[in-house]
């Protein structure tokens, strides 16, 4: 279980942005703690429930962090990251309301220059991809699954993985290839079955 620790204070949004781009856990915790209560309050005032708030915030934060890491989102001068995350989560909620054919009582504001709801809707399609990748990973044998997760999810180096596995780096490299091919076979089979 996570232990409550004092959160860091970032002097500027640029510092926070840089820490988020490094996927720094403390920056993630800071942003979550700083933004989620405000968003939850907004949701409860706008037809949402606590669980809706958690879901929308979760997806919004993942989308923003993904865009931040890939450079699709870059920090603009004078922009508060907290406000951007809030708007992402709002877009997720509005997008889900649209897909449920439920009318929202809270139209999107235009206060901040971020992606439109439609852009976020397209981003949400990536969650289906994540689900397929997750399911495929789960079907790999343990050693392969761990290797792929260490390299691609936790972003450990081949050398670090070699130390964990007690293998030579060159052996890990070959094993990564073999495991990636197995993952591909499982993934493509799932794609066929789902008609993608």
């Amino acid at each position: 279980m996570a232990v409550a620790r004092p959160l860091p204070v970032y002097a500027t949004d640029q510092e926070l942005y840089d820490a988020l781009a490094r996927r720094d856990d403390r920056a993630y915790a800071f942003l979550y703690t700083d933004t989620f209560p405000l968003f939850q309050n907004w949701m409860l005032r706008n037809s949402g429930t606590e669980m809706d708030a958690e879901d929308a915030f979760h997806k919004g934060m993942i989308s923003l962090m993904q865009n931040l890491e890939t450079g699709k989102y870059t920090l603009q001068p004078g922009t508060r990251i907290r406000s951007v995350l809030f708007e992402y989560a709002k877009c997720v909620w509005i997008s889900e309301l649209r897909s449920s054919r439920v009318r929202t009582r809270s139209p999107m504001t235009d206060e901040i220059d971020i992606q439109s709801v439609d852009d976020v809707s397209r981003d949400l399609e990536r969650f289906e991809l994540v689900q397929m990748v997750r399911n495929s990973l789960q079907q790999l044998k343990d050693d392969c699954r761990k290797l792929i997760e260490w390299f691609y999810v936790e972003e450990l180096s081949l050398r670090e993985i070699a130390q964990k596995m007690g293998l030579k780096e060159s052996s890990v490299k070959s094993k990564r290839y073999a495991c990636a091919e197995k993952l591909k076979a499982i993934y493509q089979q799932a794609e066929k079955q789902s008609g993608v």
Binding site: M1, V3, A4, T33, M65, L129, V130, V133, L183
Partner: peptide
């Protein structure tokens, strides 16, 4: 595509850790 999915899994794990810390601090 798979790299994007795996990267997002890593981000999701980081968001889950942030959420756990938030919940712990609330408690």
């Amino acid at each position: 595509s798979v790299r994007t999915g795996l990267r997002m899994l890593g981000i999701e794990q980081a968001v889950n850790r942030a959420k756990a810390q938030y919940v712990a601090s609330q408690a």
